[in-house]
Amino acid sequence: MEPYISVKNVSHKYPNGVTAIKDINLDIHEGEVVAILGSNGSGKTTLVKHFNGLLKPTKGEITVGTMNTKKERISKLSSQVGYVFQNPNHQTFLPSVRQELAYGCKNLKMAEEDIETRVQKAIDLFQLKERLDDNPFDLNSSQRKEVAMASIMAVSPKVIVLDEPTTGQDHKGCKRVLELVRMFKREGHIVVLITHDMHLIGELNCRTVVMNQSEKIADDHASVVFSDKGIMEEAGLQPPQITQFANQITSFDETKTYLTVESIIEWMKANKEEDVKVGTGS
């Protein structure tokens, strides 16, 4: 199968001379959820800003669907690629949450009725009912990010790029982001997700690309990446706390990488905990 997004030998040098990504190759297929991890300044945001044409490669090429991002206009690209900025101050907003939520759909000339159902679905998931008349400018950055995510959800473009969606979110907000990504996945979208939130990756257990010092140093399943000590160390990453815990428990299956609390409990239930001789209480 042809990849939907194809990144070929792409480098990007900012005008001040900083080379932020170097010779990146990456193919993303329809329906894939891909997480991008890596330390601060490793080039994650720079890379994904290429997907909707906000940045153009200074070397190499990117194709999205049939479009070459160098030649295509941002407006055309962004009908296919929705992008939630890392910094919501960089995202432009209309003067009310209500207008903002409908904007993308209107732009694509969807039918009024259709827009209404789409917007309502987003309002429900993000519990925005009471904020519809607020000016996004008056919201704090995590709330503004939620509005941005809700707007993208209403449009539901083919590709959805979320740059650090759980930053500043409370526990409930993080669960909502997880739900959103799972919903996009069920509906067959491509989701590209940048995050420093290892719990989120543990829950998603998805394909994981690791960036380090402008280069791609790993591209594999989260459980494989998280058990690769060399890569984790090089990129300054840490697996979720529960994975670190499980790695130290002698009675657990050494060949498995446990990424969530629930998965361990389920595994113990399935293996009847007496058999694995854990917990006689104290």
């Binding site: 719990h199 979720p240 706390q241 529960i242 815990f245 609390v261 629930e262 361990i264 409990i265 113990m268 239930k269 905990e273 917990g279 006689t280 209480g281 104290s282």
Partner: peptide, 16 residues
């Protein structure tokens, strides 16, 4: 997460 796990373990398997 470790606290959540221990609590969940105790509850599921009746341990303390």
């Amino acid at each position: 997460q470790v606290t959540e796990f221990l609590a969940s373990y105790n509850q599921t398997f009746g341990k303390d």
